[in-house]
Design a protein around this nucleic acid. Sequence first.
DNA 1: GAGCACTGC
Length: 717
Amino acid sequence: MIKIVQSKKPSASMAKDLKRKRENDSPLQAKRLKLMVSRKELPIWSRKDDILGALEKHNILVLSGETGSGKSTQIPQFLLDASWCTKCVAITQPRRVAAISLARRVAEEMGTPLGKSSPASKVGYSVRFDEAIGPSTRIKYLTEGMLLQEMLRDSSFGQYSCVIIDEVHERNLNVDLLLGFLRELVYSKRRKQPLKLVVMSATADVVGISRYLQAGSPEPSSNGDQTTENDEQEWNGFSENERPARTASRVALVHVEGRQYPVTLSYLDKPCDDMAQAALERIFLIHCKEPLPGDILVFLTGQDKIQQLKASVEAFAANLPPKIPPLQVLPLFAALPQSAQQQIFQPAPPRTRKVILATNIAETSVTVPGVRFVIDCGKAKIKHFHPKLNLDSLLIQAISRSSADQRKGRAGREAPGQCYRLYTQNSYNILEQATSPEILRCDLSAAVLTMIARGVKDPFRFPLLTPPNPKSMMKAMLQLLRLETIDSSGAITPVGRKIARLPLPPNLGAVILYAASEASSCLAEVIDIVSCLTVESIYQHIETESAREEALAARGTLTRRSGDHVTLLTTIRAYAAESTDRKAWADAHLLSHRALQNVLAVRKQLRAQCLSAKLLSGKTFPEDTDAGDPLQPVDEDLEARILKCFIRGFVDNVAKLCPNGSYKTLLGNEIVAIHPGSVLFGRKVEMILYNELVFTSKAYARGVSAVRVGWLEEVWP
DNA sequence: GAGCACTGC
């Protein structure tokens, strides 16, 4: 770029600009050259020609490459050199932090500023609430959900030459949907130039994915299915030389070796029935035998198990002989405050070994540094949606082999490591190969609405990589029909189109629309409550009995008798009204500052979307919604209007009090209990409405409010 | 009568 400008003989001011620019750029260039050395050592570096060659001939590439191959950072950069790559490259990530940190890294490798910081930036990212995209951005890292949202706005992806879907092996719901849409788009006549698709997986088992993508081809596929009679028509929009060569529709497969340190494995000889005891013994066997440095990462199922084991490790460590170095035990789970999570990144005190007791969060989301020993209990809590009972179960289950291998790999990131599996070799052998895809385990109403909004005529027949359970599909269709997002022919309604664009599950989206109606007139209040219901818990994590009492007292002024919905409303309004120090205010009330910030971010987004969808008669939300005294009781009539909106969106989630004191769902007559985290816990009211039902030790209703029988009759005459 | 794996728009 500098060369071009110079050849034009720049004027004095341009020369000055150029000098400044060069000075600004030089540290970036120095960094780029330094990083080039390590880039060239990546296993994927020598495969650049193979990969570009494959994409010259084929529109789809399936690339398998294990941890450390460098695929997530290098492939997008390789693609920029291809002649067909005239526009942007999109690359998706399952998590926000990954999207942002990869973009940052690739910007450094290319010697370009990141995102918005400079118009010259070639690399950017886009995640919810945070976007760094410039006019010359060529590589764009985004979360899967963001790309899906972009697709609802521009269904042909006109701004992209190539879309890369990374971490496909995790099989998130949004990835399965994206693959379904992209598979068609690659061969679609709606695009002037073909879209290239790269699908990347960390596991070598990609036969199913490539067969699926192959079957989307208008070419006769190898197994002969999915061949359409409209092959010629498919390419009608193209002139002869724009049409890809007939071979171009085939899927290319490339495998790249990973780069990891070796990890030695050991199993138990016979199954154990006390996992905590087995883990405790193994921790101290490692600690007393193995030299420092080398931290221990233990995979457990949940925070209760983590806290129990933490207590016994600390008790045992207190009685060790003085020549044994001390242990530092650190819990790690998502509900833990950020500051406590950060501790795992701090170096241990000298001569001390860290033991990190973690949930699944350490399997993919958080990389714990310094780990050379992994202890794996072989189990995890897995959520599963049951369409018939309309509840989620959250039960401890055996993990899959790929999950066990992923856990093992966490020991070999910095040096050779060891992995101790607290189960037998035979138990490992009979594990499922891969964790069941999310599409088989979740409520499909949002996914089906997305399909319909994207123009899918019959969601039951839309080809997905794993066909969902027909009962779940039926449940979702009925739910969408009931919420009036689709009509009886299955076509999307104007209301459905609005709901599909909201970043919410359809039932909460419907509640927003009801609240906007003139009869309800409580849109601002409902947006506040919905924002709270969609983020992580706004309450700080409580460990001890005394802390629980303290929390109840601290939050007392915010608690409202009608239940969680109005309590959340009161809380978020009081937080928003706090003008001096919100962090201190949150801490004083034992609330999570981070969660409350997220609530305000969601609220801002929902308010903006409601305004642009003209759901509010006025042009802005009244500035004074946060003014006045937020601790004043909510007017009874307003409270009734709010809860009636929720009843309409959540008819399935109503339960009545029985003579024996338990609650039974109106539809289905199933027993539900109020979750101990609810303000209604321990109370008896004639009828409850809840946000969700999760089966753990029993069916617990969460996000609960008291409602009147009469309201139901009003809402559903 | 006493509890909440993990992401994401």
